[in-house]
Amino acid sequence: MNSMIKQLIRKDWQINRTMMAIYIGAMLIANVMLLADPDNIVFGMGVILILTILFILCIHLTTSNVISEYSQKTLTFIMSLPVSARHYAIAKLAANLSMFCVPWLMALLSSWLIILTSDSLPNGLTALVTLGLVEILLSYCLIMMLGIVTESQHGAIGAMAISNLGFQGFIWGILKIPAIAQHRDSNQLAWNSTELSILAIQLVVIIGLLGTTLLIQQRKTNFI
């Protein structure tokens, strides 16, 4: 990786370290809450807290690390350095994605761990949880893309609204699919072809969103 891209990624992590520490801390607390019995209210609160953290992080990271570069005019400072539009776009995507993925991975791994070690939770639930979390990751990529491309808070908030509705619709929709609903209640760990197909589509969409962001950024002729 280009050294300038590495510097920019490191810069974003350093600038947002306090914010990230708070989110990672909150995610740790939420994960600890999942250790409670699944019938206990603390467990439910833990699940809600995980989803809340991830949804807030989607918009917070985009506003504080993407849109603020335009609104606070720090982009002029960064673009005056030996960096091209392509370097900047790659670094911004990599930094934001890596920052989002730390709490996201914590949520994914802890939910797998809780499900697989719990007697009262069916192992088949891992597929549904994974698809739901990947859908949140996809939502984040959409919000980040619109934040980077439109350079506006309105664009990111619009994407947030679409993503939020999209997530509810996605969960409602996949639970209507018999193969997924049946697997959710079974103790089978292996994924069925329906689940794998949905996951593949989600990953293709994520790659498509990231690629489109890069392509649009590279074609821009005005950066400030």
Partner: peptide, 21 residues
Amino acid sequence: QVLAKREIGYVSEDMRLYPKA
């Protein structure tokens, strides 16, 4: 521009540094 900007210093009235750093 990457090569050129290695040797350029730029200061602009509307340029801002990171406020929290």
